[in-house]
């Protein structure tokens, strides 16, 4: 499907190679220039998910990060694919969906700026649970899952800081899903 190719094509512009380990990237990062690297760190620090995190933690996470822009309609990922990344959105919205034969593609939840898309990278066997599709031009920071997992395995302080920020997101999504499942607007006002 062409949209996927377009997506990867765009990602290429932002340096697909960067998604590997920090050591491998060092030379490349220098080529990117200090300014660009600081810009990424700044944007990361400004994301609500990472609000209040330490400079050191931010630098660690930034080492796994790269910027991405995804065209409207393009899929970020599909159900069942390896969850090797997550997205911190700062522009545009994405739809999490699933297909049901006879009912087509169902949208389960939409997520927007300030939110994280993709939590499957935390939980083995690391497979995306839903389809993720950009509803409009989307800009985000992609975090490489292998990189992040390696860092939190080695650094319990970083691990704790991240989980403290991710657990409330999980709880909020669970609460939302439960409320949706009540179908309160069906018979009531």
């Amino acid at each position: 499907m062409t949209t996927r190719e377009q997506q990867f094509g765009r990602e290429q512009q932002f340096g697909r190679e960067q998604q590997f380990g920090r050591e491998q990237q060092l030379g490349r990062e220098q080529q990117l220039g200090l300014e660009q690297r600081l810009g990424l760190e700044q944007r990361l620090g400004a994301h609500p998910l990472l609000a209040g995190i330490t400079e050191a933690a931010l630098a660690e996470i930034a080492a796994c990060a790269r910027a991405v822009e995804v065209a409207a309609g393009a899929f970020l990922f599909h159900e069942g694919e390896t969850a090797d990344r997550c997205y911190l959105l700062y522009h545009g919205r994405i739809a999490l969906g699933a297909s049901q034969p006879g009912r087509g593609h169902l949208v389960l939840e939409t997520l927007g700026p300030g939110e994280i898309v993709g939590l499957s990278w935390l939980i083995p066997p690391y497979r995306f649970a839903y389809d993720g599709q950009a509803m409009e031009l989307m800009r985000a920071i992609v975090l490489d899952a292998a990189c992040l997992r390696a860092k939190i395995a080695a650094d319990s302080v970083l691990c704790c800081a991240l989980l403290q920020r991710l657990v409330p997101v999980l709880a909020q999504r669970l609460q939302g899903a439960r409320l949706q499942s009540l179908d309160v607007y069906g018979r009531h006002r």
């Binding site: 087509g104 593609h105 179908d183």
Partner: peptide, 13 residues
């Protein structure tokens, strides 16, 4: 609460 792919707005609570 429920939408198909043609819905361009928000889905969720």
């Amino acid at each position: 609460d429920h939408a198909g792919a043609d819905w361009r707005g928000h889905v969720g609570v």
